[in-house]
């Protein structure tokens, strides 16, 4: 196949992978941030400790995802980011606030700790909402009008709920005692919110574009794709059913399956993300610009592609290494 055909496809794949890594990884730490005000003061340090070693690297996936959009699809990058100007700015402010509150909450004086805790939670919520709004605006191809904006806001709430689900499941896996039991309750709220988000997006995207509707509802694609929504639905139901049982088991001191909710939540993200990518591909702006029209010069793509192929496996390897170092239940973080 011609490089001008497959290179943009490869980059679309890499970009999707980075964004998926981002929503899952930063998703759980944003979720933990949103949940912070609902925890007891003693548990707040544990919550922050559970994400402390990871958030920097998690956020780097966003830089990579946006970076790939910038370098591989420069035309789309300019159009998308200018159209999303306000939500992007709000998201960045949110990310700045939470990123620094991480450090300030323990390094500033004790009397400011409550303040920085609130900044941390607010920043996390602002960033999550803004990302959902960005997704919503993107899916309606930046259509003006209050309906499109209302939909974007709905996706904002839904994505925040989805992050809460991930964050709560992360805490079920990484904590013990009252915090862990409390997280089970949070996760149940998260399931409902996430389901709302997934349903809204699934209903609206086919309405926005005939091309997307055709991709899903024509025969035989409809039957071939049917497992995707069914599997997602099954995961939601299973997760909802298992949370109370897990609560019982944890009450008896049985930690064996504490990783299961997080895996299932990640499964829901994977399936939803796959569905979205299927809808949008091969466009980079729905019905307006496809990946080949938006692609950078093949020369630049080659140079980056070689680097990515060589370096990405190393990144994955050392990321796994660091997760293994901090494996298991969260211990208090110290610098010594």
């Amino acid at each position: 196949m011609n490089a001008e055909i497959w290179l943009p496809m490869a980059f679309a794949g890499l970009m999707a992978l980075s964004l998926l890594m981002y929503v899952v990884l930063d998703g759980y730490d944003l979720g933990v941030g949103i949940l912070l005000p609902f925890a007891k003061d003693d548990d707040k340090d544990t919550m922050v400790s559970s994400i402390g070693p990871f958030w920097d690297a998690n956020e780097t996936w966003l830089v990579l995802g946006v970076g790939l959009l910038l370098v591989a699809f420069p035309k789309a990058h300019g159009i998308i980011l200018q159209a999303l100007y306000l939500p992007v700015t709000v998201m960045l402010i949110g990310l700045i606030l939470r990123g620094v509150a991480f450090d300030f909450r323990v390094k500033a004086g004790v009397r400011y700790k409550g303040l920085w805790n609130r900044v941390f939670a607010a920043g996390s919520l602002i960033a999550s909402m803004a990302q959902g709004v960005m997704l919503g605006r993107y899916l309606t191809a930046f259509e003006p009008g209050w309906q499109a904006w209302a939909f974007a806001l709905l996706v904002g709430v839904g994505l925040s709920a989805a992050y809460v689900l991930l964050g709560a499941c992360w805490l079920i896996m990484k904590s013990e005692g009252t915090l862990q039991r409390q997280a089970i309750g949070w996760a149940r709220y998260g399931v409902f919110g996430t389901a709302l988000c997934v349903a809204a997006v699934s209903l609206v995207t086919p309405l926005v574009s005939e091309r997307i509707a055709a991709k899903w509802f024509e025969m035989p694609e409809f039957f071939l794709l049917l497992p995707l929504p069914l599997l997602t639905l099954a995961l939601f139901v299973l997760l909802l059913l298992m949370l109370p049982r897990l609560d019982q088991r944890l009450g008896q001191g049985d930690q064996h399956l504490c990783w299961l909710p997080f895996s299932m939540a990640v499964g829901i993200f994977l399936l939803s993300f796959y569905g979205l990518s299927y809808s949008v591909f091969p466009d980079v702006i729905i019905d307006k610009l496809d990946i080949w029209e938006a692609a950078a010069h093949p020369q630049a793509l080659w140079v980056i592609f070689i680097g990515a192929v060589v370096v990405l496996p190393a990144i994955v390897a050392y990321t796994v290494f660091v997760y293994r170092v901090f494996w298991g239940k969260t211990r208090e973080l110290t610098y010594s």
């Binding site: 402390g52 070693p53 990871f54 920097d56 690297a57 956020e59 780097t60 830089v63 990579l64 970076g67 790939l68 910038l70 370098v71 591989a72 420069p74 950078a296 630049a300 140079v303 980056i304 680097g307 990515a308 370096v311 990405l312 990144i315 050392y318 990321t319 660091v322 170092v325 901090f326 973080l333 110290t334 610098y335 010594s336």
Partner: peptide
């Protein structure tokens, strides 16, 4: 494009990931 991409790939991930061990990993 290539220069920014190489910065993310070879530098940002390296520093952000090993920072966890540098800051909190001595134990």
């Amino acid at each position: 494009g290539p220069l920014l991409a190489y910065e993310v790939l070879t530098a940002f991930f390296l520093e952000a990931t090993f920072l966890a061990i540098m800051l909190f990993g001595r134990r």
